[in-house]
């Protein structure tokens, strides 16, 4: 890992890959939209509303994936002082909050026609709402200190404490009686949905993941530049 610990070297590699990953993101999302909106059948129970699943489920996966990424980055920030770890965690947080909001809103738009309600306070929905507030709290906390170093530390600790919520979300549908349906893709005995629906789902999931990488690298570059600006201003004030 420490081959990438040099910020300058990391950014050089990341920026060389960025155009390729951006192109792959666009192609994957277009293919996912085509299969999701046109080239897949309606569900025998959900009818056409199943199409909402092709954005709702990948967005919810991203909400958990990005928080997990932040928790891992926070460990390497606290334990090894990896110089890019807090940059990555802070750059990832707004993207994670965005995906969590998408999951909540699209879920609501599916819940109204299928469950007959926009919202219920069941374990899955409530724990995802808490995840959304954790993202917002993290972003507020990181920026609440005059000394950015202290903000990074406080944020890293919040990200780690909040990580307990991730397995709670994942297993909420098994541990409690929820209105939300249990897992149908990531299961011990293989996915329980037909390939015609699995294809758009996985394409959108891949597209979202690539999109995350693109926006993450852009935001990390911005944050690294901001740190240089801060350092230069200190020097300027010093002289």
């Amino acid at each position: 890992m420490h081959r990438f610990a040099n910020p300058a070297r990391f950014m050089r590699i990341a920026e060389r890959l960025l155009p390729w990953v951006s192109g792959a993101t666009g192609l994957t999302l277009i293919a996912g939209l085509y299969f999701g909106l046109f080239a897949s059948p309606a569900d025998y129970q959900q009818g056409e509303t199943v199409r909402i699943m092709y954005v709702h489920v990948p967005a919810a996966w991203m909400a958990l994936f990005i928080y997990t990424t932040m928790a891992v980055a926070s460990v390497s920030y606290i334990v090894w002082k990896h110089p890019l770890a807090d940059v990555a965690a802070q750059a990832a947080a707004p993207i994670g909050a965005g995906f969590t909001a998408m999951a909540l809103i699209t879920g609501s738009l599916w819940g109204q026609p299928m469950w007959g309600t926009w919202w219920v306070w069941d374990a899955r929905l409530t724990s995802v709402l808490i995840l959304f507030f954790l993202y917002l709290g993290y972003m507020a906390l990181v920026n609440a200190f005059d000394d950015p170093e202290r903000g990074s530390r406080a944020g890293a600790i919040l990200a780690l404490v909040g990580f307990i919520n991730v397995p709670i979300i994942k297993f909420s549908v098994d541990w409690w009686n929820t209105l939300h349906q249990p897992a149908s893709v990531v299961k011990m005995d293989g996915p329980a949905i037909d390939n015609s629906m699995l294809i758009p789902l996985l394409l959108m999931a891949l597209g979202f993941k690539l999109y995350f990488l693109v926006v993450l690298v852009i935001r990390m570059r911005g944050e690294l530049t901001a740190r240089r600006v801060r350092a230069l201003r200190l020097v300027e004030a010093d002289v």
Binding site: M102, I105, L109, Q112, P113
Partner: peptide, 9 residues
């Protein structure tokens, strides 16, 4: 319901 979901995303 479907178009607003894709729209918000």
């Amino acid at each position: 319901f479907i178009w607003p979901a894709y729209g918000i995303v």
